[in-house]
Computed example of a mutant assay.
Amino acid sequence: MAGLIVGFSQAVVVLATAAIATATATPVLIPRSPSTLPPSVGLDTALWQQGDRPRLIQAIDHSLHYLQTPKAKQDYAAYTAAGQPGASLGANLRQRVIRSLQRFRHLVQTSRSAAELQAVVKREFVFYQSIGTDGQGRVEFTGYYAPTYRASLVPTAEYRYPLFRRPPNFAQWSEPHPTRLELEGADGKQWHKGPLRGLELVYLRDRLEAFLVQVQGSAELQLPDGRRLSVGYAGKTNHPYTSIGQELIKDGKIPREELTLPRLMAYFDANPSELDRYLPRNASFVFFENTQGRPPSGSLSTPVIPERSIATDKSLMPPGALAIINTQLPMKKDGQWQQQPISRFVLDQDTGSAIRGPGRVDIFMGTGDVAKTRAGLINTPGQLYYLLLP
């Protein structure tokens, strides 16, 4: 559950007719014949049954907008950073992604059913499958969301845990940067003694909520006077992300198979003093800005769309590209959340500190309590495919 918090890193990805590979030559995306794919791949019934085509087209348009920007050109140029032959490799890949999105957009608009769209996509596109965590295509899926919390612009006895602006002299901070423990103390209240003093942007009531906003990278905040404030990622320290959920598993506090966001929150509700022990284990620290009501944005600096935007490791995967996820998502049936198998067309529009390697995908689930619940219930395996025209 880590999306929305890190920009696209320098990457080396080679796109060939045989594979997409890192410069170390191990392919991370392998072409698959459509005849070998599970029958469910690309059968995106939500586009018609749930009227989801406008959201998918919106996500496509966001990727197309990004792909025409100087940032996209710079990002794709990084694919030749390790001396791969052919200076135009990154530009050629970017143009191929653009051409693929334009064609797919037309197909979404003109197809009359999920089956018809699936058939033409299988006929026209090349499917590149991620090798996953095991080299055989197993991808671990999680969900993330833009939370809504109560907050105050001034500190009070109730609102005590700040989110912080990016320090104006941050570029001059010596490296390695201070850790979370050094910046805010074990109890999260010592920030006024160091470089964070005077950088308070807004105050939250709950320390774990403030921490989760850092993990998610953005939030919608409800102020006491009824106004709403949106905050988004503005930078982070150079320490790697450490999952406190994984730390709880390692220490035997939560069984691996039971790890969900509600389970994690319940543990700290029952053991509040443990926050002092576990939160500092994530040495990374995130800064925020007032986004003036803009919707949550991903690492491409474009809005992310619920269930249509994903976060991946951008040192391996092509930014803005079209993909298919085959996994399970929680759906409500008879008043209960149940995992339902899905196949969805998505756009790769984000990344995150916890999203590393070819076997990790974070699905953006939206904003608010329902999105929070559903995101917290996603901890499932599946497959990831990228789609490109030949």
Score class of each variant (00 low, 15 high):
M1K: 02
A2T: 11
A2K: 04
A2G: 14
G3D: 04
G3F: 02
A11D: 06
V14P: 00
I30D: 02
P34R: 06
L37H: 07
S40F: 08
S40L: 11
D44K: 04
T45R: 14
W48D: 14
R55N: 10
R55Q: 14
I57C: 08
I60H: 09
L67Y: 02
K73L: 14
Q74T: 13
Q74Y: 10
G83E: 11
G90Y: 03
Q95A: 12
V97E: 10
V97D: 10
I98W: 09
R99G: 13
S100G: 10
F104G: 05
R105Y: 11
Q109L: 15
T110K: 12
R112M: 10
V121Y: 03
V121H: 08
F127Q: 01
Q129L: 04
T133N: 15
D134P: 00
T142H: 09
Y145G: 03
A146G: 07
A146V: 02
T148M: 03
R150T: 05
A151N: 04
V154K: 10
E158F: 00
F164W: 07
P167S: 13
P168A: 15
N169L: 13
F170M: 11
Q172L: 14
H177M: 05
P178A: 14
E184T: 09
D187V: 06
D187Y: 10
K189M: 15
G194K: 10
L196I: 08
G198L: 12
L199A: 10
V202Y: 03
D206T: 00
V213F: 00
Q214V: 02
Q216D: 07
G217C: 09
G217I: 01
A219P: 00
Q222M: 10
D225L: 09
R227G: 15
S230D: 12
S230T: 14
G235E: 13
P240Q: 15
Y241C: 09
L248G: 08
K250A: 15
D251C: 10
P262G: 06
L264D: 08
Y267S: 06
R277T: 15
L279S: 02
N282T: 11
V286K: 03
F287L: 05
E289S: 07
Q292I: 00
P295R: 00
G298Q: 01
G298N: 01
P306V: 02
P306Y: 03
R308P: 03
R308D: 05
T312C: 04
S315R: 12
L316T: 00
M317P: 02
A323E: 08
I325K: 01
K332A: 15
Q336H: 15
S343N: 07
V346E: 08
D350N: 03
R356W: 05
G359W: 07
V370Q: 13
R374P: 06
P381K: 02
